[in-house]
Each structure stands twice: as C-alpha cells, then as structure tokens.
C-alpha cells in the first residue's frame, strides 16, 4: 500500500464508476461523500450511528451503513448504492412489490430497506416472516409499522418460488 496518503485525495468506485475525491476533512463518512460530493442523494442520513439503516449500501457486496464507513477507507472497494439497482425505465421485483404492497409512505427509509432486502433475498430467497423481520431489524421505518414492507418481501419471495418452476427471469 502507499506509504503515505498525506495531502492527496483518493478514488472511490461507486456503481462501477471511478471518482476522484479531493482531500478534505478526514472524518467525512462514505454517506457524506456519496451525497454531497458525488450527488448520489438516494442514500439517506437519518441517525449517523448505524441504528436506522437509511444509508445502507453494498461495499464489496456486503451490506453496510455508509454513515459508519470512513470515506477514505472505501477506496479500492466496490460501492453499490440505490441508484444502481435498476435502470432508468425499470424496477426490480422488490421495488415493484414495494409499490404494489403500499410499503412506501414518506419514503425516507425506502432506499435503505430496498438495498437490505435485495441483499437478504440473495441469500435467503424464501424466508419466513421472522427471518424477514430480523433481516430488516436494522432499518427503522417510522411511517408504516413494517406491515406492508414484510408483505412486499413475501410477494417477491412467492414470485421467486413460482419462478423456480421455469417462468421468465430476466436477472
């Protein structure tokens, strides 16, 4: 590794694009840099202590709270944010289920929950309700009481289990 990173910036790979981040205050979190330096406002700041999950992103494929990642320490890692999970004109199955199930009210927690649920369903495509609830226990929602969110995950899970029977899956 570089012996000394004094007085230099660093690069961040976010959604498959490399960005040069100019030096600034060392304490900047990945969340701050994503939002205020890269204009990726989809990741939300609601607590800055890892309690709410609104800032969830994937870092090298691992679900993390971007508020708890020192931005400078995200260099050399692959960051994926809510902005990357679907194209301009499409929705993922989970996004679609959120819309249909009424899982959105104010929507502030929504991006973080979507990142979390996408990650969760990758490893556990057919979860039971308790598993869903534990998986999203790090994502606080103040509007919905979680009922419609759990419902949305179940919708996707059911689709996936039906999908294994051979229906079209364009992932």
């Amino acid at each position: 590794m570089d012996k000394d990173k004094r007085s230099t910036g660093y690069s961040l790979s976010v959604n498959d694009t490399s960005h040069e981040i100019s030096k600034s205050w060392l304490g900047e979190s990945l969340l701050y840099v994503l939002r205020e330096k890269l204009g990726l406002y989809g990741s939300k700041n609601a607590c800055e202590q890892g309690e709410c999950g609104s800032c969830s992103v994937l870092m090298d494929g691992v679900l993390v709270c971007s508020c708890l990642v020192l931005a400078a320490n995200a260099t050399g890692r692959d960051i994926k944010t809510i902005e990357s999970i679907s194209d301009d004109d499409s929705l993922t199955d989970v996004q679609k289920a959120f819309v249909d199930a009424g899982a959105i009210q104010c929507g502030f927690c929504t991006p973080g929950l979507l990142i979390t649920i996408h990650d969760f369903l990758e490893t556990n495509p057919e979860p039971n309700v308790l598993e869903i609830r534990e998986a999203i226990s790090g994502n606080l929602c103040r509007c919905t009481g979680y009922g419609r969110i759990v419902e949305a995950v179940q919708i996707v899970s059911k689709q996936k289990s039906v999908g294994q029977g051979g229906s079209d899956d364009s992932s």
């Binding site: 939300k44 944010t81 959105i104």
Partner: peptide, 23 residues
C-alpha cells in the same frame, strides 16, 4: 380503490428529492 402513490416510483429508485437532498 387502492391507487398507487404517484411518487412511488421516484421513492423506490432513490430519486425523490427530500429537503436534505437539495443542492
């Protein structure tokens, strides 16, 4: 009818602009 929120799409894509997202 259970109409869908008109802002639902923006909200699930992270495109909805909250007051903290102004620049």
């Amino acid at each position: 009818v259970s109409a869908v929120r008109p802002d639902a799409q923006e909200k699930v894509k992270g495109d909805f602009i909250f007051s903290s997202d102004l620049s």
